[in-house]
């Protein structure tokens, strides 16, 4: 191992501190805003640390008072959970057979993967007007389920693409051996391929979940009232003239908890899943 010179070591540590502060500072400020009272937040010059700890907004955001902000938040939370779960499971259900098929076709189905990649890159604005017309004609606007179906247009191609590269790593020989033993295709998939590719499945599912959790454009246009998802709820809270900065921050913190926890605990598999999908490993 090469030894580092002292100036280089100092440079490394200084850079690391700068990077750490750059990443953390905005988040810490978001947290501070959520626990400061309004007067602390609107005093000049700005106080970096609140004089009093004010946790009432966390109580407010989960309170069950009728027609209150807490109810609206909890409904949005429920919708986000439902949409992201339905959409990511649906995405997997569509993607698993497709990805396996493309992977085992050994290049004969290349074309379909091009299409998959191309569709993932289509801007939603190119699809949204007819989708609106169609959902409206079917009376299916403002429904969590419709939104999840719409999300399939993003998630199905994406998860197929991720899974395909991972299925490539499952040795086809094991599957062939089982096939010779007379196993049916669904048995092979269930007993051999999917267990072997389980980390990739988890990764793809979680990725899809995060994408659906994050989606804003379709949700803004296709939901209202009881079908709003969290991003729309937060944009409504912040986009208007609600002047309680602390409440906006609190909603932001709460809405970030699930994806941040997922990201944090699964970061290893997320990264490897992404690199395996993005890069021919």
């Amino acid at each position: 191992m090469e030894r580092r010179s002292l100036p280089f070591s100092i440079f490394i540590y200084v850079s690391a501190v700068i990077l750490g502060v750059f990443v953390l500072a905005p988040l810490v400020w978001l947290l501070i805003m959520s626990i400061s009272d309004t007067n602390d937040l609107t005093t000049l010059p700005l106080r970096w640390l609140p004089q009093t700890l004010d946790l009432h907004r966390y109580a407010q955001i989960v309170s069950l008072a009728e027609n209150g902000v807490g109810i609206a938040f909890l409904i949005a939370l429920k919708n986000s959970l439902a949409v992201a779960t339905i959409a990511s499971l649906g995405g997997l259900a569509v993607a698993i057979p497709a990805a396996w098929s493309v992977s085992r076709a050994h290049g004969r189905l290349n074309f379909s993967l091009y299409v998959v990649v191309a569709t993932y890159m289509l801007p939603p604005v190119a699809l949204v007007v007819p989708m609106y017309f169609a959902l409206s004609a079917m009376g299916a606007l403002n429904s969590v389920f419709s939104l999840a179906i719409v999300y399939l247009s993003i998630l199905a191609p994406f998860t197929t693409w991720l899974l395909k590269s991972n299925f490539d790593h499952v040795p086809a020989e094991i599957e062939q051996a089982a096939m010779i033993d007379g196993a049916r295709l669904d048995q092979i998939l269930r007993r051999i391929t999917l267990p072997l590719a389980r980390p990739a499945l988890t990764t793809a599912g979680l990725f899809a979940f995060l994408l659906a959790w994050d989606e804003f454009f379709y949700a803004l246009l296709f939901t209202a009232k009881d079908s709003k998802t969290l991003p729309v709820f937060i944009a409504d809270l912040a986009g208007g003239r609600v002047a309680d900065y602390g409440l906006i921050a609190t909603a932001g913190v709460m809405a970030s908890l699930p994806p941040v926890l997922i990201g944090f605990f699964l970061q290893k598999s997320l990264v490897s899943g992404l690199t395996a999908g993005g890069v021919k490993g």
Binding site: Y132, F133, L135, S136, L141, N142, A224
Partner: peptide, 10 residues
């Protein structure tokens, strides 16, 4: 206006 297209609007 968007909700207008939806059966169960306001």
């Amino acid at each position: 206006t968007l909700a207008q297209g939806a059966g169960g609007g306001y």
